[in-house]
Amino acid sequence: MKETEILALLQKYQEGTLSDEDKDKLDAWYLYAASNSNRDLNEYELEDSYGYLKSKLPLHAETKVIKIWPRIVAAASIALLLGTGILYWTKPKEKMVHIVEKTEEIVPGGTRGILTLSNGKQIVLSDISAKDTIAKEGENDEVTIKMDANGVITYTVNPNAEISKENANAFNTLSTPTGGQYNIVLADGTKVYLNTVSSLKYPTRFNGNQRLVELEGEAYFEVAKNKEKPFMVKSGNQSVEVLGTHFNIHAYNNEPVIKTTLLEGSVSVTYKNQKTFLKPGEQSNAAYNSNTIVIRKVDTEAAVAWKNGRFKFDNADLKSVMKQLERWYGIKVEYRGDVSDVRFSGGTFMNKNLSEVLKVLELSNIKFKVEGKTIIVYP
């Protein structure tokens, strides 16, 4: 098969217009070339197999095509050939191709959570198949905990039930593991979207003159309005108070700054001895090693993109970007060289495999090498 013919078939593959007959032709050629290979090469020595193919392809005399594999295998072979970036084309005199074994894809996280009841019992939410009542709280079943058809946890207070001493100050905790997110509706109707590697401690019902919850990690809140009972979120040395509004808090213990982003309404932010108020579109930054609060205008869509299933970066530094990937994909990141001045804008979807996300980041001239679950970053 001539070089021009092969390139034409590959172009059709990239465009998604290959016919079944063309797939068989390309598969037969691939099998012939790969079967004669005797050369190993690590996948990271190539930056772009398709571009490399067009510039280096050493094809020779036309070869008789014999159909060896079914069409479904042919399609898989082509996907391996083009989609993994692990081709090596030898010098013309060798006439051989070798395919390095494809590394296992690192898949994205999903809907996973653990609910800890006031008695210490833990319920792994991802293991629950029934979408109905999953637990009750209190001696008199004052609070019913349910899971709806979308997997959202809801709390319903029985107004006719006598409040037992046990449930007067009962707390539950919703936590998410690495690669997990979960949504919950609290007893007052407040919706909380909990990001990965986070936990929210909250009362099963809100008694007294305030609604207090405690957050570690990241969460987006849509607070039910109640002018008589302010809603408060405590994260370390910071507390946020609202009456009813939408905001995001990013407060991971392994990051140096607590970020609170307001989307609508107003909130007050107190950090150590400082207090300030946010307007929509503003974000407060409270550094652990400082006593001050810095306010800046931000892209609110980037701050809450995770809630909508996206990575979105607004001039984000490389290390903060990689921390998001560590939590979502369960990876470890190592740096080889100075990357302090590398910043990203743009994004991609969180349901993609890690390899696809890294390709997007590589557009900023950063190189990645995957070794198992470790990602090595080169400037």
Rank of each mutant, 00 (worst) to 15 (best):
N195A: 11
N195Q: 04
N195E: 14
T196N: 07
T196D: 03
T196K: 14
T196S: 09
S198Q: 13
S198R: 14
S199Y: 02
S199A: 08
L200Q: 13
L200V: 10
K201S: 08
K201R: 10
K201M: 05
Y202H: 08
Y202L: 07
P203F: 06
P203S: 05
R205T: 07
R205W: 10
R205K: 08
F206Q: 00
F206I: 00
N207G: 07
N207H: 04
N207W: 01
N207Q: 05
N207A: 12
G208A: 11
N209L: 12
N209S: 15
N209P: 14
N209A: 08
Q210T: 12
Q210I: 09
Q210A: 05
Q210M: 07
R211E: 13
R211V: 00
R211Y: 14
R211M: 04
L212I: 14
L212A: 12
V213S: 04
V213A: 01
E214M: 04
E214D: 11
E214R: 06
E214S: 13
E214A: 02
L215D: 13
L215H: 10
L215C: 09
E216R: 15
E216D: 08
E216W: 15
E216N: 15
E216I: 06
E216Y: 13
G217E: 15
G217K: 05
E218K: 14
E218M: 09
E218A: 12
E218G: 11
A219H: 04
A219D: 15
Y220I: 02
F221G: 05
F221V: 04
E222W: 04
E222K: 11
E222I: 11
E222Y: 03
V223T: 02
V223W: 13
V223R: 13
V223N: 09
V223E: 06
A224P: 09
A224R: 06
A224I: 00
A224Y: 02
K225N: 13
K225W: 01
K225V: 08
K227G: 01
K227Q: 07
K227D: 15
E228W: 02
E228L: 08
K229N: 01
K229F: 06
K229C: 01
P230D: 08
P230H: 07
F231H: 02
F231Y: 10
M232V: 15
M232T: 10
M232Y: 05
V233C: 04
K234I: 11
K234Y: 07
S235K: 02
S235I: 14
S235L: 10
S235Y: 00
G236V: 08
G236P: 06
G236D: 14
G236N: 13
G236W: 01
G236F: 02
N237I: 03
N237Y: 12
Q238Y: 00
S239Y: 11
S239K: 13
S239M: 15
S239I: 15
S239A: 13
V240R: 03
V240P: 03
V240S: 08
V242R: 01
V242P: 00
